[in-house]
Design a protein around this nucleic acid. Structure first.
Lengths: 330, 330
DNA sequence: CACCCATCAGGGAGCGCTCCCTCACCCTTC
DNA sequence: GAAGGGTGAGGGAGCGCTCCCTGATGGGTG
C-alpha cells in the first residue's frame, strides 16, 4: 500500500523527475506531449505529492493556524461566534487551497503550545479569534515576524485586525430606544477586557450623554447566564428602568428570561435591544431587536486581510459597518 | 532569522546529531550529562524541530483531520453541534499532542479535497462529524485503510462510530408525555438521511405503538426555521394535538415560536419536548424539556475511539446513554 | 589475564521533493 | 553555412530529520 513517488511517476512516464515536478506545479515551460504523458502516469498511479517533502524544501506550508481563545469562563458551548467564524474562515481558506490548523488558546499551557507551534514554522500565517484584551499571545506572535491578523481588536497595537464599528452600533441601539420614548435606559456590558465591550459601552454612554440622561450599568461576560444575572441586578438597582441595551444577544436572551420571571412585559414595560443579530434573536419571545453585524462578513474580511498580509500587503485595520434590525422587543 | 537545525544544536553541545535526536525524542539510552548539555543548547538556541523533515522520514504526522459536513441547507450558523464538538475534539486532541486539521465537507469539490488530502498521507487518522447518511465520504475514507472514527453513525458499516441511544431517548421523551396525560402526540423529525433522525422517529413510534396511539409526523431538517414550519403544518393537520416531540432542540425552539404565534399556551395547550438539551433550552419561554445527551461526552468518546484505532485497537461502535431533563414546557 | 558481551555515542544513508545548473537541440540571422 | 541565442529537458545537490549500523569503552566471567 505504498504511495508512489515522483521518481516512480517519472519512470512510468519515461521522463525526468524534474519534468514531472514541473507538470505537477503547473509551470508553463513544458511541452504539451510531456505534460500529457505525465498526467496520464499520475492518474494511473494515483500519485499525490508528499506534502512533508515539499514543505521541507520550499519552506512554505500552505497552512494557516486559526487560534481561538475560549469565551469567558469556558462554559459557553453554543456561542454563535465560534461556529460562524471558524466555519466561515475554514471555508474561505480551503477555497484558496490552504490548510486550517485549529488551535485553542484557553490555558497557559495551550498558549505555550500555540507559540511553540507557530515558532516551529509550521504555518504561513496566524488568524486570531476573540482573544482577551490582556492576552499576551498576539504580541508574542507578532514578534515572530509571521503574518498575523486578528478577528477583533487586541491590545497588541501592531497586530492588524478587522473589527466592527462597535461604538457606532451601540449608539444606534440607544438612539433607537430614545426615539421610542424610553427614558431610563440601562446597559449590560461584556467583559471589559475586550475592546468590543469597552467600545459598546462607550457608544451607549455617548448616546446618553448627548441627551443628558444618566447611565445605568451592569457587568456581564457575554454569556446568557451573566445576562440573566446582570438583569436581576439592574432591576434591583433601578426598578423603574424602561429599557436595556445588552452588549450581545446571548446576554439579551438571558435578560429576557429574567424579565419574564420578574413579570415585566417586553416591550411594554421594558424594551430590550441586543447586539450581533445572531440567528436565535429572531426566535426569542418576543423576537429580539438587535444591532446587525454580520460575523460571517467580518470573518471573511479577516481572512482576506491575512492572505493579503502573507502576500506582503499593508498592515491596515478594517472597520465594518452595522445597522439595526428592529423586532418585537423594542 | 533562520531557525537552528539539529546539526547546529549538536555542534553547540559538542555531540553528534544522533545524540541530540535521541534527547529530543526522549530515548533512555542517553547518558545524563549528554542529556543536560543538549537540553542546554536547545534552550539557548530556541531550537524547535522541523516537523516537515520529521514527518518525511517517520511517515507519521501527529495530525488528525476533523471533517465536518455542513448542516442541512448550510444556513445554520449557530448550531451548538459544531461549536461543542469541534471545540471538545480540538481540546482533547491538543492535550495528547496532536494537531487538528479542520476540513469542511459541504460540496463535491470540498469532499474531493478531503479525499485527496487524506490520501496524501498528511494525517494519522480522520474524525468524521455529522455526515449525511448517504454521504460517500466515510466509505471512501475507510477504503484507504486509515483509521476513521465517526461522531454519529454513517451508512458505511465498516466505519466505527460513537452514537447516542437515539431510539431510547425518543422513547423516554414520548413516554414522559404519555405519563403527563397527553394523548395526541406529534413529532417533528430531523432530515431522514441521518441515522439519528430515523432512530429518533423509530423511538417515537415504538413508544406510541405500545399504547396503541397513532403517530402524527412532520418533517424538519434540524433547523429552527424548519421546526417552525413543521409546527405550522402539524397544527393544520391536527388542530387538537396536545403534545409535540421535536427531534432536536433547535426545531423545538422553532415550534415554540409557531405555537406562541398561534396563540397556543405551552404547556397548558400543547406540551413540547426537544432532544439534545443544548444550552439555549434553558432559556426559552417557557424553558424547554429535553432529552439530555452530552455532546461533549460523545465528542470525547469519539476522540478516544479514534486514538485507540490509531494505536491498532478494535473497531467497535460505542453507544452513549441519555436521560430526560424536565422543565416548564411539558 | 584474556575474552565476551552489554551499553551507548557517532557516522551516514536516505525519506520525497524542488530548483539550480548544465546541456542538447533547433531556429534565426548575417 | 557558421555562429548565436532561445527553449526546454535532465542531473543532482540538498532541505532537516530519523534510525540502522558500526565501533569504542568498560565491566563481568572463566
Amino acid at each position: 500500500m505504498k504511495r508512489p513517488t515522483l521518481a516512480v511517476v517519472a519512470a512510468r512516464a519515461g521522463v525526468s523527475k524534474s519534468s514531472v515536478s514541473r507538470v505537477i506545479n503547473g509551470e508553463t515551460t513544458v511541452a504539451p506531449e510531456i505534460r500529457d504523458v505525465v498526467m496520464q502516469a499520475v492518474r494511473e498511479l494515483g500519485y499525490v505529492p508528499n506534502a512533508a517533502a515539499r514543505n521541507l524544501v520550499t519552506r512554505r506550508t500552505d497552512a494557516v493556524a486559526v487560534v481561538v481563545s475560549d469565551p469567558p469562563k469556558g462554559v459557553v458551548t453554543d456561542d454563535p461566534l465560534f461556529s460562524t467564524v471558524v466555519r466561515t474562515v475554514s471555508r474561505e481558506l480551503e477555497a484558496v487551497g490552504r490548510r486550517v490548523v485549529l488551535m485553542l488558546a484557553e490555558s497557559d499551557e495551550s498558549r505555550a503550545r500555540v507559540e511553540r507551534y507557530v515558532a516551529g514554522g509550521h504555518v504561513d500565517g496566524v488568524m486570531l479569534v476573540a482573544l482577551h484584551g490582556a492576552d499576551p499571545l498576539p504580541a508574542a506572535l507578532a514578534r515572530m515576524g509571521l503574518p498575523v491578523a486578528s478577528f477583533n481588536r487586541t491590545a497588541a497595537t501592531d497586530v492588524p485586525y478587522v473589527a466592527l464599528d462597535n461604538a457606532g452600533g451601540a449608539e444606534l441601539a440607544v438612539r433607537h430606544l430614545l426615539d421610542r420614548g424610553r427614558r431610563r435606559i440601562a446597559t449590560i456590558t461584556g467583559p471589559l477586557d475586550l475592546y468590543e465591550s469597552r467600545e459598546r459601552l462607550e457608544g451607549y454612554r455617548t448616546a446618553l450623554r448627548d441627551t443628558g440622561r444618566r447611565s445605568i450599568v451592569a457587568l456581564g461576560d457575554f454569556t446568557r447566564v451573566s445576562g440573566a444575572e446582570a438583569m436581576r441586578q439592574l432591576l434591583e438597582d433601578d426598578p423603574d428602568l424602561d429599557a436595556v441595551f445588552a452588549a450581545n444577544d446571548l446576554m439579551a436572551i438571558g435578560a429576557l428570561r429574567t424579565l419574564h420571571q420578574a413579570g415585566r412585559r417586553v416591550p411594554d414595560d421594558v424594551a430590550v435591544v441586543g447586539f450581533d443579530d445572531i440567528e436565535a434573536a429572531a426566535y426569542t419571545t418576543p423576537a429580539l431587536t438587535s444591532v446587525r453585524s454580520s460575523m460571517a462578513d467580518q470573518a471573511t474580511a479577516t481572512v482576506r486581510l491575512l492572505l493579503a498580509l502573507i502576500k506582503g500587503g499593508p498592515r491596515k485595520p478594517v472597520i465594518m459597518p452595522n445597522d439595526l434590525v428592529v423586532r418585537e422587543s423594542s
